[in-house]
Computed example of a mutant assay.
Amino acid sequence: MTATSERPTETPANPFLETPERAALRASVAALATRYGQDYFQKCAREGRKTDELWAEAGRLGFLGVNLPEEYGGGGAGMYELAIVMEELAASGTGLLMMVVSPAICGNIIARFGTEEQRQRWLPGLADGTITMAFGITEPEAGSNSHQITTTARRDGDEWLLTGRKVWISGVDQAEAVLIVARTEDAKTGKLKPALFIVPTDAPNFEFRQIEMELINPEKQFQLFLDDVRLPSDALVGSEDAALSQLFAGLNPERIMAAASAIGMARFALSKAVDYVTTRTVWKTPIGAHQAIAHPLAQGKIELEMAKLMMQKAASFYDAGDDWGAAEPANMAKYAAAEACVKIVDQAVQSMGGNGLSTEYGIAPLLNLCRIARVAPVSREMVLNFVAQTSLGLPKSY
């Protein structure tokens, strides 16, 4: 190879630099979120009302459906872009939990596996925010073990009858429908297999009750009760025989979005802490100059950036159509982001002393909210089980 002074005509794509389109999206979402801010979010929560204005404006601007197909009113992008929206909203103190559920889980599943009629019926509304859909998988006795789900769907002529219970289902009170994970009976073996059904929240024999929680959040959690809920044949999404693979199309985005939410929340807390320790002076020196304050915040920044890279990797795999390839980084991103978020919020409070628990500085509400990232949508222990068994090939413990 001979040396040459000529520069290449094209620069290879840098995976660590966002495209101009993604950078513009990030800036636009940040501008919207800043106009509302944490004060708006907290006021909605304390007054018992929803963040309807923010949700509606985000929908009109195309942010909610940025990952959905253009032919159904979406932005035609992917999970990378939707994660940007989630992260920037959370970084301004306005993280919308239902973004994890409605466009990410339900929207992706319907877009990939729904019939043309289902796509036409649901996707435009999910994209512009005029329709919200919840997702129901967790059950009181099954927890994270989807193989033990007991909600069953049985045929009754051309219709379905669903019976069962769900718990920890987000946003049912603001949803037009719930995408329910049930199980159907295999006529040949008699075994139950998972399947997905769209259940309108106003369907007869469908009930939901709010779970009281010590969280200041506009979006609530619910128990669901289904007692022979009758559904038309077209309520089934995709194939009766392939729902487990279809489930991955929703669960990987769920973990990516959970990571994005935790990353944004951590950024919010870290920014507040840095501003405080830079200006707070004791003994003529800003407290941020002291390594006991500076080093934990710097460590949090390092761990936060590593979690963000893993989230971007997971989103890139998913957008390339590799569900299995996305599973490992999606779980790792969710774990790393949750751990970084909890650590940063705790250190922010510690760095700010008593002010960290005051209403004025806005960090105290995050003490409870950040813990959600560790236990939902999948606990850190189950993520560790996944990595131990899938990534390391260790024996299964359960």
Results as ranks from 00 to 15, higher is better:
P140C: 14
E88C: 07
V101C: 09
P15S: 13
A348N: 06
I263Q: 03
R374K: 15
V277E: 05
M332L: 15
A203S: 14
E70F: 03
A333P: 01
C44V: 10
M382W: 15
L89S: 02
A315D: 01
R155L: 14
A242K: 05
S397I: 14
G114R: 00
S391V: 15
A269M: 05
G93H: 03
G65Y: 00
T51H: 00
L126N: 03
L394D: 10
G62R: 00
S102H: 02
P140G: 12
R60K: 14
V375P: 02
G356W: 02
E305T: 13
T279M: 08
L251C: 05
Q347W: 09
A187V: 13
E47C: 13
M1H: 10
R121V: 06
T163Y: 12
K334L: 10
T201H: 04
M1G: 15
T151S: 13
S379I: 08
A45N: 08
W283V: 07
R26G: 04
E116F: 12
A177F: 05
L297V: 11
V172P: 01
L247Y: 09
A243L: 01
R49Q: 11
L366S: 03
E57L: 14
E70M: 06
R209N: 08
K188M: 13
P124F: 00
L162C: 06
A77F: 02
A337L: 10
S233C: 09
T9Y: 12
L226P: 00
E159G: 04
A315T: 09
R155W: 14
A338N: 03
G75N: 07
L68M: 06
L179H: 06
T9N: 08
N205D: 15
S397T: 13
E240R: 12
L54E: 02
L97N: 05
T279A: 11
F386E: 01
D156M: 11
E139D: 12
L192R: 14
L224M: 10
K193Y: 04
E116Y: 13
G74W: 00
I256D: 02
D227L: 09
I287K: 09
V277Y: 09
I256V: 10
G157C: 12
G353M: 09
A330N: 04
D156F: 12
T184P: 04
C370E: 08
R112W: 05
G95C: 02
G250N: 01
L251W: 09
P20D: 10
A326V: 10
F317P: 01
E57T: 10
V85H: 00
L304A: 03
G73L: 02
L357Y: 15
M352P: 08
D52G: 11
E88H: 02
L123S: 03
V100M: 13
T281I: 12
F268K: 02
G362Q: 11
M265A: 13
L54W: 01
K220E: 07
M306C: 07
V100P: 01
E81W: 01
T189D: 13
N217R: 08
E254M: 15
A298G: 14
A142G: 14
A83K: 01
K193T: 14
T151K: 05
A56R: 12
E21P: 06
V167H: 09
L123I: 02
I363W: 06
C341P: 10
